[in-house]
């Protein structure tokens, strides 16, 4: 991928983000759009971990949980502004990823999957059980970030839906830009090298453990920021955000869209966020159709949607 391709990808993303609201019949679509961008952000984190460095994680919802609860807890107990709480959450997540990443990234394949899974479950258990702090399974309120009144004072009136659409879009663009830069950097090349063959990478002098850990920490920060954004826009948070199903959902989005590609990740997030909304017309068959669609994609487009389709367009087949 050249620098030009990077700007093309970011351009496509930005144009879609700007153009979409023109087709929105109601405020509800801003909400769905914002959700897609937030999900895409955490999935891009997984692109770095799974797509670049070739490591798996089934526990990233745990980091989303840390980010989300940082926004709920820090303003209440530390008197921190919610915007700063996002940074605090990201910091705590990074530190946590650093601490647990060192021992568990020695594991490979299934073992790594199970270890990360354990981490995710641990976070969600703590959030559920520390009732006095987190409100337990009933969840807790998240203070408003207070940017909308600020914008209003500047003469810009936006609805909650519009504000979060724009905010999530901007953060996603930033996240995509960082991930695309990383792809071309020396670090990114090292990660991709160890993905290809750990032994070969080690032979040419790549510090395998260090780059695995870096990918893990980076992806944890993405998940954490996405969790914070979700908490701030919902204004309320429960331990579900750190739940196992949320971790699985993230990985599914990444794999469905194309795990090595930033745009693919966004597409995967868009599809899996939109489908349940579209399929409400089928009521009881919703889950069935959702599962069926995913099986079909995996059989016929095994690289994930976007990479498979672009490969076809270039006439290289799959």
């Amino acid at each position: 991928m050249t620098a030009k391709q990077k700007w093309i990808q970011l351009g496509i993303l930005a144009v879609i983000m700007l153009a979409l609201p023109a087709f929105f019949p109601s405020g509800y679509y801003y909400r769905v759009g914002a959700l897609i961008y937030v999900n895409a952000l955490s999935v891009i984190g997984l692109v770095v971990l799974i797509g670049y460095a070739g490591q798996i994680s089934l526990g990233h919802a745990g980091f989303a949980g840390i980010g989300a609860y940082a926004c709920a807890l820090a303003p209440e107990h530390l008197g921190l502004h919610p915007a700063l709480a996002v940074l605090l959450g990201a910091g705590v997540s990074a530190l946590m990823a650093l601490l647990i990443g060192r021992p568990i990234l020695r594991l490979k394949g299934y073992y790594l999957a199970v270890a990360t899974l354990g981490f995710g479950i641990l976070v969600s258990m703590v959030l559920s059980n520390e009732r006095s702090l987190t409100g337990g399974p009933d969840g807790m309120a998240v203070p408003d970030i207070g940017l909308r009144p600020l914008l209003r004072d500047m003469g810009l009136r936006v609805s909650g839906g519009e504000f979060w659409y724009a905010a999530s879009a901007l953060v996603l663009l930033l996240g995509a830009w960082i991930a695309l830069n990383l792809h071309q950097s020396a670090t990114g090349r090292a990660m991709r090298a160890l993905h290809g063959s750990e032994t070969a990478a080690r032979t040419v002098g790549i510090d395998v453990a260090r780059f695995k850990l870096q990918a893990f920490v980076i992806s944890a920060v993405y998940a954490s920021v996405a969790g914070s954004l979700l908490a701030l826009q919902n204004g309320f948070i429960t331990p579900d955000v750190a739940g196992f199903m949320h971790s699985v959902e993230m990985v599914t989005m990444a794999v469905l869209g194309g795990v090595g590609s930033v745009l693919g990740a966004t597409l995967g997030a868009a599809i899996l966020t939109l489908l349940p909304q579209v399929l409400t017309v089928l009521a009881d068959y919703e889950q069935l159709v959702l599962g069926f669609v995913m099986i079909l994609v995996m059989i016929f487009l095994p690289l994930g949607l976007l990479p498979s389709i672009t490969a076809r367009f270039r006439g290289r087949g799959v």
Binding site: G27, Y28, R31, G139, G161, N234, F236, D240, P276, T280
Partner: peptide, 21 residues
Amino acid sequence: LYDDGGDPNKARTFATRLVED
């Protein structure tokens, strides 16, 4: 009627959908 599956995040989306759409 929407089924939020017990997920607060989905419930919020459906509530927005009920009101706005």
